[in-house]
Design a protein around this nucleic acid. Structure first.
Length: 473
RNA sequence: GGCACGAUAGCAAAGCGGUUAUGCCGCGGCCUGCAAAGCCGUUUAGACCAGUUCGACUCUGGUUCGUGCCUCCA
């Protein structure tokens, strides 16, 4: 029985889908004006894990993750770069796709773009105006009248009074209430615009998600996710828009049953963000660390906890993942067979993920299984380890491929290249043969010398009854 | 200022009202020509102060500290 921490209720709740056997899930995706950073990676990986677990649990999942391809920052950046908005957004959508593939993220079922939904947004704004939840100001902007929506603040736990008291924004004189937010912005010079009943303009930020989620998932759906920072105002405003627009006879229709928010990635105990400038892009990190290590690092913490980024933590994650792959060495990939959920560890794994997606506990199961594989050499346990890890999107490579760093560049390896010592596998194999010969001749000094030389290039040799193997540090 | 969340061993990170979390590091042993890997064992916990309880890291209250949101942000 799956339980999910519902931000709306501030507690874990038993998950009951609207339609038995089906799950509709919407996640706020990226605004594509720059490369994705680790914070974005966390959203992608976390909700990828969530969708995988829902599917393994037997649900038919419809997973929608939007792309925001029109907003202030996009317009600004395109102007700075002297390129069109389409050129800019295409470029970064492509980069985002590359990053997510690297991180083992399965594509969402639908990735709607805001600019493809202008009509739907205009329709929704019109409905809001008709129902008295929105008004057009004399400058052509259309605002949402927050005080007309009873439940405003229910997601973020804020009251309108508190919000007004803490008001730090410059008051827009066109607004009736400082807390009102914009649905439609009137056109400005050098900005793209679309025709609307209120004149040329472009949509505000929040309306796109309301329009796209209801179009693809209906007026009411099961799960809505995103980063913690979207809780307010973005998600609060989505609720206000959707529930008011879909109200019938003055009765509002609940938009989302379960709201999920993932915690931040931090640097030096501070939120990683564009505005603070302390962010690391995914591709920067991938220059130094294997993508699976990054994925492992993300899933090693519970999705709602803060996740502190540092090289030390990535190094630690790499060593931990190495332990798992080491246990799988010699156990070749098996075709994914059905998992025996009666198995004690499998049951523990399931219980962990059913408990609000407790991936750290699920990981502990993987390590216990690795220990069992090391002790018993059981092929069945190794297969179970692999199949459970697959649910987290981990351990799907050949063990030696990971351990020997195929397709990745480690620091030490690049140093070796700089020293004109390309330690490719052929060279390593030859050195190993030389060392075996030395060992046979009882020339241990020579054998140790060879091993030491390789070690300095980051190649660790391991003698086993089956022969000598190697891996990269 | 308002609201919310958190504080676990050297580092990271979970569960749990009483029974080994887990990973990395450290230490001892086994194994090894020596290593590495692995296995076995092991040292470091639960911010502070009260309360509830036979018993609290786990529940309740308070204190302190930290982070986040209140403005674009995953």
């Amino acid at each position: 029985m799956l339980k999910i921490y519902n931000t709306l209720a501030r507690e874990k709740q038993v998950f009951t889908p609207i339609i038995a056997g089906k799950v509709s899930m919407y996640v706020c995706g990226m605004t594509v004006y720059d490369y994705c950073h680790l914070g974005h990676a966390r959203v992608m990986v976390v909700f990828d894990m969530v969708s995988r677990w829902l599917r393994v649990s037997g649900y038919a999942v419809k997973y929608v993750r939007n792309i925001t391809d029109i907003d202030d920052k996009i317009i600004k950046r395109a102007n700075e770069n002297k390129e069109t908005i389409a050129q800019l957004t295409q470029r970064f959508i492509h980069a985002m796709d590359e990053d997510s593939v690297q991180l083992g993220v399965i594509r969402p079922d639908i990735e709607p773009k805001a600019t493809d939904f202008i009509e739907g947004m205009i329709g929704m704004i019109s409905a809001l105006v008709e129902k008295g939840f929105a008004y057009a100001a004399d400058n052509g902007d259309v605002f949402y009248a927050v005080k007309n929506f009873d439940g405003y603040g229910k997601l973020s736990g804020k009251s309108l009074e508190d919000l007004r008291a803490g008001e730090r924004v410059e008051v827009d004189t066109h607004k009736k209430d400082p807390m009102d937010f914009v649905l439609w912005k009137s056109v400005k010079p050098n900005e793209p615009s679309w025709d609307s009943p209120w004149g040329k303009g472009r949509p505000g930020w929040h309306i796109e998600c309301s329009a796209m989620s209801s179009h693809h998932l209906g007026e009411r759906f099961d799960i809505h996710g995103g980063g913690q920072d979207l809780q307010f105002p973005h998600h609060e405003n989505e609720i206000a828009q959707s529930e008011a627009a879909h109200s019938h006879d003055g009765k509002s229709c609940q938009m989302v049953n379960y709201w999920m928010h993932n915690g931040f990635v931090r640097v030096d105990d501070e939120k990683m963000s564009k505005s603070l400038g302390n962010f690391f892009t995914i591709r920067t990190v991938l220059e130094k660390y294997d993508a699976e290590v990054v994925r492992f690092f993300i899933l090693r913490a519970h999705y709602r906890s803060p996740l502190n980024y540092s090289d030390q933590h990535l190094d630690d994650a790499k060593l931990a993942l190495t332990r798992l792959y080491t246990a799988l060495r010699g156990h070749h990939m098996v075709s994914a067979e059905a998992i025996d959920w009666q198995h004690a560890q499998a049951a523990r794994f399931k219980a962990a993920l059913d408990d609000d997606f407790n991936t750290p506990e699920a990981m502990a199961v993987l390590f216990d299984l690795a220990n069992e594989v090391n002790k018993t050499k059981s092929v069945a346990v190794a297969a179970l380890l692999r199949n459970l890890a697959a649910i987290l999107g981990l351990l799907q490579r050949d063990a030696n491929e990971f351990l020997q760093g195929v397709g990745q560049v480690s620091n030490i390896q690049s140093n070796a290249v700089e020293m004109n010592q390309p330690f490719d596998s052929d060279v390593i194999d030859r050195k190993i043969l030389e060392r075996i010969a030395a060992k046979k001749a009882k020339n241990f000094a020579e054998a140790d010398h060879i091993r030491k030389a390789l070690a300095e290039a980051g190649i660790i040799l391991e003698d086993t009854p089956q022969g000598t193997t190697w891996r990269r540090a």
